[in-house]
Write a protein that binds this DNA or RNA. Structure first.
Lengths: 206, 206
DNA sequence: TGTACATCAGTGAACGCGCGTTCACTGATGTAC
DNA sequence: TGTACATCAGTGAACGCGCGTTCACTGATGTAC
């Protein structure tokens, strides 16, 4: 990996002075730190230690703690969207099935990466005015609006968007926080079916 | 207030050595601290300072930071339930209207006290194994189940509970975090009507 | 009613810790000539 | 192709800070006799 970026060098020094891709390594370390310590206990020094680098090094790439958390949150949103697309792939290509599947992906992401989910939806530490983070967040919102519009066959109303988003988000947040224990205890297939059902119901006309 | 608890004393010393009701004062201070600093920046010393007391004093009542946050979370759940009951009072006495009103109260609490809402639903800092906190949280769950059961006219199914809770919780969490900006921008009466509609829709059979 | 004493609530100094940040530095890279 | 030099990434020591916790203490309260 590291040697591939310098293919002319046959021998890699055991501990090179420059890291190679410290930025990426720090984001990875930051996710581990977040998972271990929670948003509340997250520290820049902890991330540097995990990446095997001096504690002042991260400043070159992210400025400060907030900068690193902002970059991690942006990455989190991109993976969040990616998980929804993956789940949509598994579903039938009807708009309603696609919408329900994106909701299922929403929940799956929250269950798979609860710390990241909490960072992007329930923390003030990242800078949500940051352009990269804004764009990543808006991509997630755009996917939702697209799916709702396709299902309704008309431009999505605010009622519909709020209903679908709230339902998916509520399920994701409650489940990833360990509430709704009865649902967590269900076999996965049954739970998934229930989530699809509930999301679809959110959009049915009353 | 303070002198009422010692009515035999005509003159109250200007700065009594004993506080009188430090426990309650600390919980109040803790809420202010939480609102100002967020769950992430909350500190025991900060609370003591707000209560006008030495920083070691809180230990007598709460042990440590976690203990104080646990007591605050329990108080938060009680107020959360109280807000739902108050909102139900404003609604018509039909089961469905009562259920929708409790959902509206859920959202109102989150908007009125976002920091407290985040503490009880999106933080690991309180000790959720604590008996007092458990009881307070279960009272909130009990109210939900009761309302769903009354509306269905039959014991609440897990599908119904999950659908209603998720919808109300999702609305509350997204709105209190400043997402769903279009909804936040609506006139209050219109917004309330929309919330009632969405909660009711969550329970309509598909 | 008065006195002695145990208990309790709050004080303030002290501690060690991990944190973010700064700074002079050094090793590596890449570019100009 | 070789050399000089600017730029950049990472180091490690140092700083000041706020934190939680401990501890000997003191003032107040309440109870036993």
């Amino acid at each position: 990996m590291h040697s591939q970026s310098h293919p002319d060098k046959a021998i890699e020094p055991s501990t090179p002075y420059h890291h190679g891709d410290l930025r990426a390594a720090l984001i990875k370390a930051a996710e581990a730190e977040l998972t271990d310590k929670g948003v509340e206990g997250f520290s820049l020094r902890g991330c540097a230690k995990r990446a095997g680098v001096s504690h002042a090094a991260p400043a070159h790439h992210f400025g400060d703690t907030r900068g690193l958390l902002t970059a991690l949150a942006a990455e989190g949103f991109r993976r969040f969207v990616a998980t929804q697309y993956e789940t949509m792939t598994e579903a039938e290509p009807h708009p309603q099935a696609q919408l329900a599947a994106s909701g299922l992906g929403y929940v799956r992401f929250a269950l798979a990466r609860p710390a990241l989910f909490r960072l992007i939806f329930s923390s003030d530490r990242p800078n949500f005015d940051n352009e990269e983070l804004c764009n990543a967040a808006e991509a997630a919102y755009g996917l939702l609006v697209e799916n709702v519009t396709a299902t309704c066959g008309a431009p999505a109303t605010i009622d519909d968007i709020a209903a679908v988003w709230s339902t998916a988000h509520g399920l994701a947040d409650l489940l990833s926080a360990g509430r709704l224990k009865d649902v967590l205890a269900m076999p996965e297939a049954e739970r998934d079916a229930m989530i699809l059902r509930i999301v679809i119901r959110a959009l049915s006309p009353a």
